[in-house]
Design a protein around this nucleic acid. Sequence first.
DNA 1: CTGATAGTTTAGGTATGACCAAATACCTCA
DNA 2: TGAGGTATTTGGTCATACCTAAACTATCAG
Lengths: 260, 260
Amino acid sequence: MSEQAHSDSGTLRVPVQLAPMQVPKASDVLADDLRERILRSEFPEGTALPPERELVTQTGMSRTTVREALRILEVQGLVRIKTGRAGGAFVQKPGEESIASTVSLLIRGRKIRMASLLDTREAIEPACAQLAAVHRQDADIEALDRANEAIAADGSLSDFLQANVDWHVAVAVASHNELLNGFMLALSRAIYTSTDNQGFVDAEVRRTTVQAHKSITEAIKAQDAAAAVRRMQRHVHAYAEAVKEVDVRTSIDVDTDTDD
Amino acid sequence: MSEQAHSDSGTLRVPVQLAPMQVPKASDVLADDLRERILRSEFPEGTALPPERELVTQTGMSRTTVREALRILEVQGLVRIKTGRAGGAFVQKPGEESIASTVSLLIRGRKIRMASLLDTREAIEPACAQLAAVHRQDADIEALDRANEAIAADGSLSDFLQANVDWHVAVAVASHNELLNGFMLALSRAIYTSTDNQGFVDAEVRRTTVQAHKSITEAIKAQDAAAAVRRMQRHVHAYAEAVKEVDVRTSIDVDTDTDD
DNA sequence: CTGATAGTTTAGGTATGACCAAATACCTCA
DNA sequence: TGAGGTATTTGGTCATACCTAAACTATCAG
């Protein structure tokens, strides 16, 4: 009672205590709702959400708001928006793509060094090889062999690098672990785009790479998990060492230039 | 010449060949441009982009379009938008958060099984421990010790699980590898939210966990990378086995119920 | 009957303009 | 000088109109 206040007009004022509250944005509310429903598989993949104008009448929100909500879901990879008649927002499951692009942003935004990328790959890829040896299907083996042939072919440097990425991604796919798959896709791309400047890929390196890939593929084919892990470890470690070596050489070159 | 057509009015028609061209959306164009500039560090972190109405005059686009572009960047974690005077779109580097949320979407959207999550953790976390042993700072050790104390405290189940997550995340942080850190943050959360239903965490499990964490922390503290890897491998593998065991028990229980 | 062509319809994309709400800056007055 | 009210800036929402893309449809020539 001692805390109660009275107005002059005699109205009884009860001291209401309110926590600071956050008013969510309307578009976020709608986006959250739709996201939740999509993730609950309330709409099967491929079905179209109601058209924007329909959502407007259903929700009582403005078209601007509805559109922002849909844009959010689109960026998050939960819907794909098509224009034109029979267009609309089509539900889709987020794929490895979305992880890969997010990781790319992180790598570029944080200026993550090549050494860290290689560390991460050394951490993840042997595990991919192990799981691949356990879970590999016939189709996976074919993909690996195909990538190996492309690598062995005497193509341009960028052809080689692309085929190299394909093989590594194929290993991740063969693991049949979608998370590792997404991680490796992101990593491979980042390493790929950071590598094409570094000219340490000579004929010798290519020969060694082909050899290593073949022996790892064999282990996966034979479902020899232990060997797959060991060989992959050696392979990616050797690659990392080679890159570091080039870095050192480049630094020295730069220093020499400066001394001139 | 043989392919040229003539109109009756005498106009010369040259058979122009055009490739199918894609007209990008205006909002994407603006978003791409701003994203590129942000990633190039053209705007230092924390600076505000011009206000929406200013961007409208600068770009000649409508405010709707400008806002959609900003919304895209916001979802991608490249800007943080604040309302009110002195508000606006503030440039920020994408953090582990953005990876974690993307991974969460993938996990939920694809209904990835607990077993896969645990596989992935078995792949990544030993590597985190290894790098942590190499790169750990004093502050990291303190964080680990603090998380350990919270785990040892006799709290509720959810307290225990939360402290458990904190410790694992602390290991990832101690690795000072932002990518692994992001991956582990995402994984830990996913495993955490999938675990709180499973009631296999009894006093015995908690005691074992505390013990394992302590010994791993010791190895990291002593910068004994090999021991850190080995112990972490055993720890997460044991945890995975325990979960699988519970799964089997649960299945049997269900079957038994059905037999009733 | 067929096939190209020109409408028609549906859906998203963009442009304006107005007003609301939040957060800060600023100014006034005790 | 400090507390409190006011003004201003900036994002959030709404309403409306019109443009553009894509698919369906009707139509007309051959």
